[in-house]
Nucleic acid binder design. Sequence first.
DNA 1: CGACTAGTTGAGGCCAGTCAATGTTGGTGG
DNA 2: CCACCAACATTGACTGGCCTCAACTAGTCG
Lengths: 265, 265
Amino acid sequence: MAHVATPVPLVPAPADASALRVTDAASLAPVISIRDVKKRCQTCGMRELCLPIALTGDEMKQFDALVAHRTKLKKADTLYRAGESFHALYAIQFGSLKTVVLAEDGREQVIGYHMLGEIIGFDGIDNDRHHAAAIALEDTEVCALPFVSIAQLARIMPALQQNLHHMLSTEHSRAQSVMLMLGSMHAAERLATFLLNLADRYRQRGYSSTEYVLRMTREEIGSYLGLKLETVSRLFARFHQEGLIHVQGRSVKLLDTAALKKITA
Amino acid sequence: MAHVATPVPLVPAPADASALRVTDAASLAPVISIRDVKKRCQTCGMRELCLPIALTGDEMKQFDALVAHRTKLKKADTLYRAGESFHALYAIQFGSLKTVVLAEDGREQVIGYHMLGEIIGFDGIDNDRHHAAAIALEDTEVCALPFVSIAQLARIMPALQQNLHHMLSTEHSRAQSVMLMLGSMHAAERLATFLLNLADRYRQRGYSSTEYVLRMTREEIGSYLGLKLETVSRLFARFHQEGLIHVQGRSVKLLDTAALKKITA
DNA sequence: CGACTAGTTGAGGCCAGTCAATGTTGGTGG
DNA sequence: CCACCAACATTGACTGGCCTCAACTAGTCG
């Protein structure tokens, strides 16, 4: 069963006064000295995609200082649950997560698939509680960025403010695209859109855009696309047969992206 | 046919130097003096729901000063189109608008229905272009809030910054709910959810929550809900027959909200 | 008054869902 | 290392909900 991740301090927290309680959520709060966090934004491979893009060296240092801690998640671990109090955004260092919302009757729907370099948690800002839950799909590591600190820093650092606005807006645009997909596309169009979208995001990250490994089960993909797992499975088979892709379990190879693109339009 | 609205200055713009070109989009830019805008935030009935909530009197004045102009829209007028350059958010004074996104093949999907007191335009922040179009569903009036000014003011006015973040996040949460609806609900559940959502929003605005007039056609409602207009029409008839609602064209009266709520879950 | 748009209602078809059986994969412990 | 098990995936047969097509009505505006 999935359990809540207990953030692992990279270095044992010292017992002296420099130890700082970063958050108020007792169950999640690690006692950890900020000075002891080893990895820094300056050396982070993801900084090009993260909040501090376009910051000067000095600004970067200030931003770096507010990173509360890094959290390691194992597969199926929960980063935050729906209804849980919000205090931080999370930058994904590596790995991937899904975000899910629950209907009142218990049905759940995957509404997001997030990979390294992306920032999640925006849904908690408006009423200090998360609407969705975030669950790791594999071994994953995230940086916790306390939101009050970000907001504070954004006031004196226009570039950071702009980045924050951009990220919030990008999330919104992404959501709009998903709505378009769910509202007006057929099953095959949805899957093709999904496969091409993944290809694009892997390409942006310097990975192969034609060959990748899915991190979600057929059921999770189906949930994200508003389809049943059997439908997803059948579509994979059909695309494979038609020579558009090669599928072997979760390994996917796009063979004819032009044809896939044609399906989406 | 829908045509782009030409914002009507409330007072003829003077020809002197105080005339200020508020925007660069030539076709949309009204030449209007900021000093001549009559209505102020202080006297606006919508200020409780708008960006300046919780601002002090002095802060409110500063915010008020940045409101570039008010725009009057007739039914079917376009406030902004997809692809158009972004420069302002819009606060809806009265009336309502739909937001629509277009797929590459020309299909369009309604992704939002916005009423007085709401702020739209957030989708343009990330790459300075709007992703969706906003179209008036009736005679409507909006305040244009230049985004650079808002951002600037937010840096020195934490309450405004917080409001801005909240609004962006609320939009995100709303989008998540729509995704849940489109991805995992049946036709009847979707319509019931829609009707109850409208009831709630009218209630928040001090209107009747059990009796209201729809501003959208069956086709637009269907597009928003991912259904065809015939399906929407049939569902209205069914709900009516079952005594859940009373429908007469676009006038709706909710008779059994408990039963409607039950349908959604 | 005619033309047009919006809405209703019916008949029939198809796409995706449901139910069910079987195959495959990956992790765990003997 | 292999056997076992559970989770994941595939495939087939059938069903049903929503879409499509179509005819008709009601209301609106020039």
